[in-house]
Design a binder for these strands. Structure first.
Length: 417
RNA sequence: CGGGGCGUGGUGUAACGGCUAACAUGCUUGCUUUGGGAGCAAGUGAUUCCCGGUUCGAAUCCGGGCGCCCCGACCA
């Protein structure tokens, strides 16, 4: 992509209605646009990042046997009434809309009920389980207070997976499998080192839920982390008997702020029973299916990456989520030979299958470098009079470290390693 | 939903109740410059969030509304 053709531009000033670092940087760099409080549009660069995050999550969910679906955003009140969750007194953050006089529909905030009904149409034997089904879909939640940029919005894209199994042992086994998949997702998203499995309140479903918390001063949650064991407890369950049960000592725990980037709930038979999702076991007995659910907010994960990894100059994208693999920057000063050389390199890299953002704009070096730092593509390649004289192009990393002149003959090899 | 703060060109800011609403940035044009947001010049761009009130006169004061941010509560 030629940067001169990109319809977005960077800006020097962050809008004053944003305080959160993630929103300030993403808006300044042209990744997102705020429509209103808690609702952000994704612009070309931001949408590429989000799609990369989506790809990572999808790959890992498929790898543990997840089957992908896409359910509707409009939701039928009937099944929610069956489980007793339609009332605003039970779920108070639900956007609802009217179909016609007296007929109300829900806008998706979660999908346990509709998916349970779908599964019940197809599965009824012990041979049909276990199964795990997921989707990546827009959710709406009427947050009383949207905040922290894209970390807590009223409309957001979420991956929600639901597991359907026959026994507590199977539930536990799948739970563990998903935990490992989640840890791989966060590692690939570049925040593995600061993300920890955290025990939290299980709500009405079970004793604990499992959260994935990324250490970050901007986080909403307070957790108590045992670094050596790499597990933490959320402050909501930071009490003696929980610590004892988990084998944690208060003296080993550090208090930290963190962002909840993922969570896992054991649902038991809370939904399968009222909705009649049962299976016949080997002996012919009818049993309710045991469920679990597994969520990751894509936008929140993107925000957590920005919060965690950016520096004073701008965003620093990890390789797998970066909008482009490489930022090619020409410093030509109108010199046609340098422009031609940069154009040629752009074509060469593109033909080699490398995703390149090519800053072909006729601007001074300082401005181009400042923009490149702000946008945060991990690898930079500069072509200028100086680099041509030195026999190549200058390769550097956004995160710092060595800058070196690489001759064209070695370029593809160097980029790929 | 309780508390606090704030709404002024695209963006960031300024302006005692009183002159044509100022400055920076952006954008346009020209000259100059070309490895870290250069310089000069000329332009462009505002119903000062909305409605009402006070006043000879309102961006400014008052009332109401709407919006945005922060703290708290809430948060599958």
């Amino acid at each position: 992509m030629r940067q001169s053709q990109l319809f977005t531009k960077t800006r020097k000033h962050a809008p004053k209605d944003e305080v959160a670092k993630n929103a300030q940087l993403l808006i300044r760099a042209g990744f997102i646009h705020k429509e209103m409080a808690g609702a952000y549009s994704y612009l070309p660069l931001g949408w590429r990042v989000l799609k990369n995050i989506e790809r990572i999550i999808r790959e890992e969910m498929l790898a543990i046997g997840g089957q992908e679906v896409l359910m509707t955003t409009l939701q039928d009140p009937e099944i929610w009434k069956t489980t007793g969750r339609w009332s605003d007194d039970v779920v108070d953050n639900w956007f609802k809309t009217e179909l016609s006089e007296g007929v109300t529909l829900g806008l998706a905030h979660s999908h346990e009920e509709p998916l349970t009904r779908i599964v019940a149409q197809y599965a009824s034997s012990y041979r049909d389980f276990p199964k795990a089904i997921f989707q990546i879909q827009n959710k709406f939640r009427r947050e009383l207070r949207a905040k922290s940029g894209i970390l807590r919005g009223r409309e957001f894209i979420m991956k929600d997976m639901y597991s359907f199994v026959r026994s507590e042992e199977e539930l536990q086994a799948f739970h563990e499998k998903c935990t490992q998949a989640y840890l791989r997702i966060f590692a690939r998203a570049g925040i593995g080192a600061q993300t920890f499995v955290t025990f939290a309140s299980g709500g009405s479903f079970s004793k604990y839920s499992e959260e994935f918390q990324t250490l970050c001063g901007a986080g909403e949650d307070t957790i108590y982390l045992d670094r050596a064991r790499k597990i933490a407890v959320n402050e909501e369950v930071y009490v003696d008997d929980v610590l004892q049960e988990l084998g944690l000592q208060k003296k080993d725990l550090e208090e930290e702020k963190a962002i909840e980037v993922g969570n896992i709930f054991k649902l038991g038979t809370r939904f399968s029973e009222p909705l009649g999702l049962t299976f016949t076991d080997e002996s012919g007995a009818q049993k309710p299916v045991i469920m679990g659910c597994y969520g990751i907010g894509l936008g929140r994960l993107m925000g957590a990456i920005v919060e965690t990894l950016s520096d004073e100059k701008g965003i620093v994208w990890p390789k797998e989520v970066a909008p482009y693999e490489m930022h090619l920057v020409s410093i030509a000063g109108g010199n046609a030979d340098i422009i031609a050389e940069a154009d040629r390199l752009y074509d060469l890299l593109s033909e080699s299958g490398i995703e390149v953002l090519y800053d072909d704009r006729d601007l001074r070096a300082g401005e181009k470098f400042a923009d490149a730092d702000l946008i945060g593509i991990p690898t930079r390649l500069v072509v200028s009079e100086k680099t041509i004289a030195a026999g190549g192009a200058e390769l550097s990393a956004r995160s710092g470290g060595r800058i070196s002149i690489v001759p064209e003959s070695e370029l593809l090899e160097r980029i790929r390693c």
